[in-house]
Amino acid sequence: MTATPADSSSSGLVFAGRLPLAWHQLANLPDAIELQTLERSNLANLRTLFALEIHAGDSGDDPVALASANELKRLDFKVGVLLELVGQLYARQQAIPPERALTLTTTGLIWRDTEPLATDCALRLDLYCNLNYPRPLVLHARVTETVAFAGGWETRTRFQEPSESLQEALERYIFLQHRRAIAHSRRGDSR
C-alpha cells in the first residue's frame, strides 16, 4: 500500500494498494436525494475509520504524563485487538469481495479486471477501506475509460459529483495511508 503524489490527471495524493472492491452496473445513477444519503453514510464511515487511526500520543519527559500515556497505549491496544476480532467475525458473516490492486483519488477509482466495462456506464462501487471496520464506502461513478493490458482491462472511473466534504475526507484517508506506509518503511529500515 502506497500513497504517492498524483499524476497530472488528478490533484492531491493518490492511494495505490490492495483493498476489497465490488462493483455493480446500474441502469441509472441514483437521484440527488439518495446520493446525499449515501454521502452522509460515507462521511460517517470515514470518520469512524479516522477515529480508529488515532493512537495515544507522545508524553514528553513528564513521568506522570508518561505513565498516563503508557496506560492509554495499553487500552488503545486492547480496544484495537477487540475491534479486529469483532471485525473478523462480522466480515465472515458478510460476503466481502476479493482484494484488488487499485488506485484511489478524491475524484475516481482505477482497477484491473479480466472483463472490460462499457465507457460511460454507471456503477455502484463498494470499497472496503479497513476490514477491522468492514463497512464499505458506497460510491457511484461512471466509467471514463477502459484500457487493454496483458491479461485484462484497466477500468478508470470518475465519482458522481462528490461534495467538497467527501473529497476532503477521501484526501484525509489517502494521506493517513501515506503516513502509515512511511511509518512501516521506517520501522523496516531501523531493523
Score class of each variant (00 low, 15 high):
A91W: 03
M1F: 08
N45H: 06
T105Y: 09
I96L: 09
Y90W: 06
S185V: 02
S190G: 02
P30M: 12
S10H: 15
A32D: 12
S163N: 11
L123H: 02
R18E: 11
C129Y: 00
A148Q: 15
C121W: 05
L38Y: 11
L75H: 15
H184K: 15
E39R: 12
V79N: 06
C129E: 04
N42E: 03
F175C: 08
Q94V: 01
H178V: 00
A3D: 01
G151L: 06
E84Q: 14
L29D: 01
S190H: 11
P63L: 00
L109S: 02
S165R: 13
S190P: 01
G12A: 03
R156E: 02
S185Y: 10
D62T: 08
E99C: 09
E53W: 09
A69D: 00
I182E: 05
G87I: 06
A51K: 05
Y173K: 07
A65Q: 14
L125C: 03
G60E: 00
L43S: 03
P63R: 03
L52K: 08
E145D: 14
S8W: 10
V147I: 14
T37F: 12
A183Y: 11
L21N: 06
E171F: 13
G151K: 12
Q177S: 10
V147M: 08
A183M: 12
R92D: 02
Q88V: 01
L13T: 04
V81E: 08
T106V: 04
T4F: 11
P5V: 02
P97K: 08
D76H: 13
L137F: 06
L72R: 15
F159Y: 15
A44H: 13
R112A: 10
S9L: 06
A95Y: 03
R112F: 04
V138L: 05
L72C: 09
A95R: 14
D126Y: 04
T155K: 03
T155E: 02
T144G: 11
A150S: 15
L83H: 12
L176A: 13
R112D: 07
P5R: 13
E53L: 04
A91C: 04
S165N: 11
A169M: 09
D76R: 07
F50Y: 12
L75M: 11
E84G: 07
R172Q: 11
A69S: 13
D62L: 07
L83D: 03
T48Y: 03
R187Y: 09
S9K: 15
E161W: 11
R124E: 11
S190R: 15
H184M: 14
L89G: 04
S185R: 15
L170I: 13
F15S: 00
L89H: 08
W23A: 02
L123A: 03
P116R: 09
I182R: 10
N42T: 04
S185D: 11
D126W: 03
I54G: 00
K78S: 05
D61G: 01
N70H: 10
L89F: 04
L117Y: 04
P98S: 02
R40L: 13
S165Y: 01
P30H: 15
S190M: 13
L82W: 13
G12P: 06
S68N: 10
V14N: 01
C129M: 08
A183S: 13
W23K: 06
L13P: 01
E115P: 00
V14I: 07
A183L: 14
Y90M: 04
A16S: 14
G60W: 00
N42D: 10
P97C: 02
I96A: 06
R92M: 07
A141M: 11
